[in-house]
Amino acid sequence: MEGVLESAQTFHWRRLRLHVGAETLVMDRRVPLSQRATVEGVRSYDEVEEALVKGSGRRVTLQVRLTNGHPDWEFPGVPRAEAEWAAGLIAGRLATRQRAAAAGFTGALPLASLQREADTILAGDTRQVVDLVDFILVQATHRGASDVHFEPFRAESRVRYRVDGVLQEALVLPLNVQEAVLNRLKVVSNLKVFETGLPQEGRIVARTGGRSVDLRVTALPTIHGEKVTVRLFDPQRGMLALGELGMSEETLRAWRGLVDQPQGALL
């Protein structure tokens, strides 16, 4: 899992630029009096140790420490807020790669264990909401779900998957966590976070298992707060054959007999 909802970000500092991508870091330098730039380094996150903000005051130095004997990258004179933002993004990418081997991000877990795994994520030190949203969506992809429903109730919020047309309750979230989860989904799908009284629709392209999955996000106001539905369009699933629809042998034989008829229509 490559960081389900992580988008790329490019920082411009004088003549230097840093591109924080999903898979790599790229440093380039703009050519004076030109729109062109020369690439000075490309590093995968396996070659990155950490990102540090050095110095005090309004402008600082961002240092990207590299492994395997590669010289560190330094970006001097960077506004502190932007340096901290870039360092936080890089730290998030490194944390994402470390968690990629966790069971919850490499395959479908038993439905009964999803709540325990979600509670473990929320008990972590950092990125709890980011990791929780990624975990919920990755599990939906592994389970072949077509929809994920975040449904608020009076005292709690429930997350349900729609698999083969049947809604399955996956886990329960406290209301304060539900608000943070919905805000995360709204931010990455370019919805208005402050707007809670009107329907909204957005889109995310997520990466999981080495492929892209299209997510359509819909937010609707309800009596207990906003309900968010995420529809998953996984190109790997494609069209199902007749025998893959879960019908019994008797029903399947009847359908095959109808399909083989030379005329008529099936409704």
Rank of each mutant, 00 (worst) to 15 (best):
L109D: 03
L111M: 15
Q139W: 06
R99E: 12
S157W: 00
R158A: 12
V129H: 11
F135E: 07
E117F: 08
L137S: 13
V130M: 13
F153I: 08
D119V: 12
H142L: 12
A103E: 15
Q98Y: 09
F105S: 14
A100K: 11
T96Y: 01
G107R: 15
P152F: 05
P110E: 11
A102H: 15
G92K: 02
Q139E: 07
T120A: 15
A101K: 10
D125Q: 10
T96R: 06
Q128P: 03
Q139L: 06
H149E: 01
A140W: 01
F105Y: 15
L109F: 01
A101R: 13
Q128R: 15
A112Y: 13
A91G: 08
E156M: 13
Q139C: 08
V130G: 14
D131L: 08
G104T: 10
A108L: 00
T126D: 04
H149Y: 05
E156K: 13
A118V: 05
A145Y: 01
I121L: 12
R99H: 09
A100S: 13
G92E: 01
R93I: 02
H149T: 07
D125L: 04
I121S: 07
L114N: 04
E117G: 04
R143Q: 07
G124T: 00
Q98R: 10
R99S: 10
A118T: 03
F150W: 03
R127F: 09
E156D: 14
Q128V: 01
I121H: 09
R158G: 07
F105W: 14
I136S: 02
P110D: 11
D147E: 12
P110T: 10
R99M: 03
G104K: 10
A102D: 15
V129W: 07
E151F: 03
D119W: 09
A101H: 09
S146D: 08
D131M: 07
L109G: 01
F150I: 05
G92N: 06
A145S: 08
E151V: 08
R116D: 15
A91L: 00
G107S: 13
A123S: 10
L114Q: 04
F153Y: 13
A101P: 04
D147V: 09
D125T: 06
A108G: 02
A145M: 03
S113W: 07
V129C: 12
A91V: 00
F135L: 07
Q139M: 10
L137T: 13
D119L: 11
A101Y: 03
T126C: 01
A108F: 02
T120I: 03
R158V: 05
A155V: 05
A101S: 11
T106Q: 14
A103K: 14
D119E: 15
A100D: 06
G107Q: 15
S113I: 07
R97S: 14
L94K: 04
T126W: 04
D131T: 14
A100F: 01
A95P: 08
V148W: 05
G92H: 04
R93Q: 07
H149Q: 05
R99F: 04
G144M: 01
V130Q: 15
R93E: 00
Q128F: 09
P152N: 11
Q128L: 03
D125M: 02
